[in-house]
């Protein structure tokens, strides 16, 4: 499968928002139990138009961190800023794609109406037009009248992507978006994401447990520690663009990044470098 992922030259990066985490911490207090600190203290900045991945050992609180960053959950300590403004609820120009697409699409709504469900305050005529446009951009223009459960997993995730871009976001957060699809579908969804990020110029934060995916997609990879999680290292990925599923992954430097990140996750003590 030959594929070229183009990042449109001269994209207006100013469309992307900056997302800043300042000492974000989160602890839970289970009833009758001892409080659990999921996130220690995480600080970093997602710059305008940048593509950053968060990787870390399983159970390190990646998803919790993403929920804090999005404003769905309030951090116990620290602050999140979206273009300098403190986040207290999900900002209007931020979209989120969840891991379990099957559980984030409304089964009683058609695909088109699912996309429109993400557009509060938009008149239905305009909403329908934007939904169709978004469905075309994700490559499923003819499925607007279908129900989500009539589509394959990969296509359902495309619907979730369409809903995310229909809002014309300036920042996209993705929580393990491709974890439950097969390898080929995953590749095409990765390409789609890179193409959309390039064309629309939004900033992207991807949470993933897949190190290869993180390297392939990102401008920068943040490696998280075990819980209570903090940023161990920020690794700029200096691989040429456009990225190519076959050629990029075959590069010596790709292998080098992979080995470095693997070692860091296995042996966090040895890797304590500076955070971003």
């Amino acid at each position: 499968m030959k594929s070229n992922v183009r990042s449109t030259p001269g994209v207006d990066r100013a469309n992307g928002a900056t997302l800043t985490a300042e000492g974000v911490a989160k602890s839970y207090h289970p009833r009758g139990g001892r409080s659990v600190q999921a996130i220690g203290s995480v600080s970093f900045e997602l710059r305008a138009g940048e593509f950053v991945s968060l990787v870390g050992p399983s159970g390190c609180g990646k998803t919790t961190l993403l929920r804090c960053l999005s404003g769905l959950v309030t951090p116990s300590d620290g602050a999140v800023r979206f273009d300098g403004e403190t986040v207290s609820k999900v900002p209007g120009s931020m979209s989120i794609v969840f891991q379990e697409y099957g559980r984030s699409l409304f089964p009683w709504l058609s695909v088109e109406r699912n996309v429109m469900a993400g557009l509060p305050g938009v008149r239905s005529g305009e909403g329908r037009r934007r939904a169709r446009e978004a469905l075309e951009m994700v490559g499923i223009p003819d499925f607007g009248d279908s129900y989500p459960w009539q589509l394959s997993g990969g296509m359902q995730q495309r619907v979730a992507m369409a809903r995310a871009i229909a809002t014309r976001p300036r920042c996209l957060l993705m929580d393990e978006p491709f974890a439950s699809v097969d390898a080929l579908t995953r590749e095409s969804l990765e390409e789609l994401t890179l193409r959309l990020a390039g064309e629309l110029g939004f900033s992207t934060l991807l949470v993933t447990h897949d190190i290869d995916e993180a390297i392939f997609m990102s401008d920068r990879v943040l490696v998280l520690s075990n819980r209570p999680s903090r940023v161990l290292r920020s690794i700029p990925i200096e691989l040429p663009k456009p990225r190519d599923e076959v050629a990029t992954r075959a590069m010596g430097r790709f292998q080098h990044y992979r080995a470095e990140i693997h070692a860091m996750i296995r042996n966090p003590e040895g890797a304590a470098g500076g955070a971003a």
Binding site: S70, L72, K89, V90, G92, S95, I96, F98, E100, R103, S104, F106, A117, G118, L119, P120, G121, R163, T167
Partner: peptide, 12 residues
Amino acid sequence: RLIETARAYGRN
């Protein structure tokens, strides 16, 4: 997750 999705997209 459905409720979280609605909240994420600003539904009241």
